[in-house]
Amino acid sequence: MNINEFINIFNDSELVDNKIVIKSKLYEAVEFVKNNYSYDILKEIIAIDNKDFGIELIYHLYTTVDEEDLFLSITVKNEIVSIVDLFPSAQADENEIYDLFGINFIGNKNLKRLYMPEDWEGFPLRKDYVQDEMRLAWNDSDNV
């Protein structure tokens, strides 16, 4: 794909070692690369908790036509627009990130606790996560 053309259109974006960092308009950017550069697979969404800088989401797209990878990065605080109607596979990733990082994806109606039980408190993959004291009580029991 032509990265310069992309950066011209989304003018708050920049190229930082192999990934394009955008500040806003995530949905439009993904839609743009899907329609114009035939990026047809969303391989995964990677979430990283950068402590005070917020949570970074990396959208990893791939095109089977040109056989190229694209990493789109955006930093969010608590919520971001969902791209589930562009790529249905995002449902899986968004639900995982909702469960483990506590980020709300606006527009995705199917979000729920996935890996953790419904009554679990906290988001395990955040850096400031403290283990659930209540559950640890199970391990202290002397049933043996």
Partner: peptide, 27 residues
């Protein structure tokens, strides 16, 4: 299957993420 590692120069990964095929098949 893919593996993403972010390192901040420590002997442990700062963040490690796996992509697995089956997860998307379930979806």
């Amino acid at each position: 299957a893919s593996c993403y590692v972010k390192s901040v120069g420590e002997d442990k990964p700062y963040r490690l993420k796996w992509r697995t095929g089956s997860y998307y098949s379930v979806n």
